[in-house]
């Protein structure tokens, strides 16, 4: 057990290090842009004196390292600064949006992960059958189309023709849960179709890969049923690759939603980042980037730890 705790701590440390490096890159990226925030803000109307006043107000006259550590220290305390576009606290601005994005990701994950695992297991169980082939074709087709295309097709069918679900997912903080679920269904379905192929195919491949191992053959010689063999003998040993792909796709559900949010006009973080880029609201873009990076790091960390923890050799040392 001790060795696992040590491993987890090591990975956590590495994760923090990665985040630190990411923050540095984000900060430097902005530094490298020509001009500074004040020039961007004031544009053509800038004069020397208004620029100087602006810089003083935003603390831009300080050296880059000072500003970096200042910014980092504030972020560590949850203070992302103020939006340039409307002067509101960024943390406030992001808070609601982030919750929306997480909600959408959660709904999509709750549909996509179990579905992909079950389909992957079934595909492995009935390998090379018509079921396996058609599920492969379907998931591959859905991953091959661009997200917006899938989204519009879904809107056309479920919203325009059948009228079951709204084409706009305009939720607000006081939308009740059921209505909220109803409204996010189409974007969640779009995301599900996009991420499912990857997870399902990895589950299938990981299990089939193990089906050639001697202990699976032994299980067959023990007269166990095929489903028992796959679920009890193959699956526990297939977790490591599956968990990693699931984590990667969960991260995508949060970080990669930009297009889907725009199509469905869903008030999530992706929408915010698009708006902010258009408005040159750099502090907001920086904050969103950090949050996305943290999500990635955290999910991959979880995958790492889970795949280590499901290894019986590590779980039960000699």
């Amino acid at each position: 057990m001790l060795s696992i705790i040590r491993l987890i701590l090591e990975r956590l440390g590495l994760g923090v290090l990665v985040l630190f490096a990411v923050s540095l890159i984000i900060f430097l990226g902005v530094e490298l842009l020509p001009g500074d925030l004040c020039q961007a803000l004031q544009g053509q109307s800038a004069t020397e004196s208004t620029l100087a006043a602006c810089r003083k107000e935003l603390g831009l006259e300080q050296s880059a390292p000072t500003r970096y550590f200042h910014w980092l220290a504030n972020i560590a305390q949850g203070d992302f600064g103020k939006s340039l576009a409307n002067g509101r606290e960024i943390s406030e601005l992001i808070g609601v949006r982030l919750a929306n994005t997480f909600f959408l990701a959660l709904v999509a994950a709750v549909i996509a992960v179990p579905l992909s695992l079950i389909l992957g297991i079934l595909a492995a169980l009935y390998r090379n059958s018509w079921f396996d082939r058609s599920i492969n074709v379907l998931t591959l087709a859905s991953i091959s189309f661009p997200e917006f295309f899938v989204a519009y097709i879904l809107i056309l069918v479920f919203s325009v023709q059948l009228g079951w679900f709204p084409s706009l997912s305009d939720v607000s903080p006081d939308t009740p849960l059921l209505e909220r679920l109803h409204k996010v269904f189409l974007p969640a379905l779009t995301l599900t179709l996009v991420v499912m192929a990857h997870m399902m195919r990895m589950t299938r491949a990981a299990i089939i890969n193990l089906m050639a191992s001697p202990y699976i053959e032994m299980a067959q010689f023990k007269g166990l049923s095929r489903s028992h063999i796959i679920i009890h003998h193959a699956l526990p040993n297939a977790w490591a690759p599956i968990v990693n792909v699931v984590a990667l796709n969960l991260a995508y559900l949060i970080v990669g939603v930009v297009i889907v949010e725009v199509v469905f006009v869903y008030p999530g973080l992706g929408q915010l980042i698009v708006d902010s880029v258009q408005k040159r609201d750099i502090p907001v873009v920086q904050a969103c980037s950090i949050i996305f990076a943290a999500t990635y790091v955290l999910l991959n960390l979880t995958a790492d730890i889970l795949s280590i923890a499901t290894n019986p050799r590590l779980l039960h040392p000699k």
Binding site: S213, P214, Y215, E217, M218, A219, Q220, F221, K222, G223, L224, S225, H232, H233, P236, N237, P312, R313
Partner: peptide
């Protein structure tokens, strides 16, 4: 045949290390 295997006909493999499932 499945009902016979393990019950009336059993098998002992060459490499026990590879033939036991590491997860159980």
């Amino acid at each position: 045949k499945q009902a016979l295997r393990g019950v009336r006909i059993a098998y002992v493999a060459q490499s026990a290390a590879a033939s036991f499932n590491p997860a159980h």
